[in-house]
Design a protein around this nucleic acid. Sequence first.
DNA 1: ATGCAATATTTGTCTAGACGTCTATACATA
DNA 2: TATGTATAGACGTCTAGACAAATATTGCAT
Lengths: 237, 237
Amino acid sequence: MDWEPGLSIWKQIEKQLLSDIADGVFAPGDKMPTEMELVRRFGVNRHTVRRAMAALVDTNVVRVEQGRGAFVQEQILDYPLGAKTRFSQIVSGRHRLPDKRLVSSEVIKANATIAGYLDLKPGTRVIELFSVSEADGVPLAVATSYLPAGRFDGIVEIFKETKSLTEAFKRFGIDDYSRKTTRISATLPSSRVASLLKQAKNRPVISTESIDVDADGVPIEFGTTAFSSDRVQLIVE
Amino acid sequence: MDWEPGLSIWKQIEKQLLSDIADGVFAPGDKMPTEMELVRRFGVNRHTVRRAMAALVDTNVVRVEQGRGAFVQEQILDYPLGAKTRFSQIVSGRHRLPDKRLVSSEVIKANATIAGYLDLKPGTRVIELFSVSEADGVPLAVATSYLPAGRFDGIVEIFKETKSLTEAFKRFGIDDYSRKTTRISATLPSSRVASLLKQAKNRPVISTESIDVDADGVPIEFGTTAFSSDRVQLIVE
DNA sequence: ATGCAATATTTGTCTAGACGTCTATACATA
DNA sequence: TATGTATAGACGTCTAGACAAATATTGCAT
């Protein structure tokens, strides 16, 4: 490897690795060579390699995990739609850090649509949760969830604390629940959703409507979710 | 200085400097201590100090300039309104990197308002420029400018190349021009403007309408500008 | 085959030093 | 006065080495 003067070596290494990734030498999800391997390849000090990798981490091109190595960051998360798929499991299964932020919540009276999905009488009080799901700080989806207020009184505080609906349901004695139906379509986001997703208003989102039921088949949640189509791909098998 | 175990020293230094800044020990625009001074203060190696500073640069809290030092990033730019004040001069005078990005441009027929300000007959062709002004990559203002198309044919290309209206005017023989009037008010931004300014839609902007004239007093530009009120303060003296 | 403990691998942090690059300042010169 | 030069100060890059922390692998005992 020979270095062109005028540009720091770590920037040239960054450039080289970036073009390797662009060329598919390292595909998304792949493990990158270890620091020591890169040291041998480029013939520089380990710190110089680390400086280049830090730049790639900054731009979210790679992800580094202590003890495991560096991986090319998948820009698109495969989100399998199954009866038992849980957001946090999917994200942490990909070695990324899940987070679910509650934006707002309130108790409202169910309209005919919501009541229908939840098997309630229209006018019954339901809890509305508005939240953003993130992986490594990057927003992937914004969701509006409706839960029967009678059955889940006080669930908002538990959700805030655990940041997980699955966990919150457990506190209400529901150890097991499953997805009954998911409807999928594509729309343009409202400006509020676009800004929460940190994406342009003219980029489409995948919108889903879903119903979750408990072990007895009783609806416990109706939700609409807007997935960033640039960062998430839904998988049905 | 004593270090609590479990948290890396550079992170503790970052935290300390951050709270110094929050406490006003170092005010926005102030020069931070030099790396060597911080080395003596914290009793660590220079690289450790640099690691902490790099984190502060990443979060846009400080700005480092080779050969000069590190400075607390000013969140508010003072923008003096004068006959000869030029955006790029003001920004680079604060040791920040100015940039003016052309978003779109087209030739339209002047309506009564624009024609009136430019001393043209309604229906005359004018060039419309829509641009974003940035300092260190942070957007400060979005501007719509109208110029007589007849007098400034081809100015768009020059503006794209030089990123400066002042420079573009020079190519048309106008070495000197000045601000005739500036009207100032406050509004809420359109969603397009808010997104270009990378600020929330509910944060107000300072909107100005301005007329620039050449040395002979002939109008050469009518513009409306929306300044981010969180980052810019207009100064009239 | 399974589970656990020891070992190896890999990334993270800190120190030390050398030299390069950019800026500001003082000074000499024209 | 203006300009160029020398120098000092400050940040940028690169190398070298040691140890810590997290993870993966190996091998042993059951």
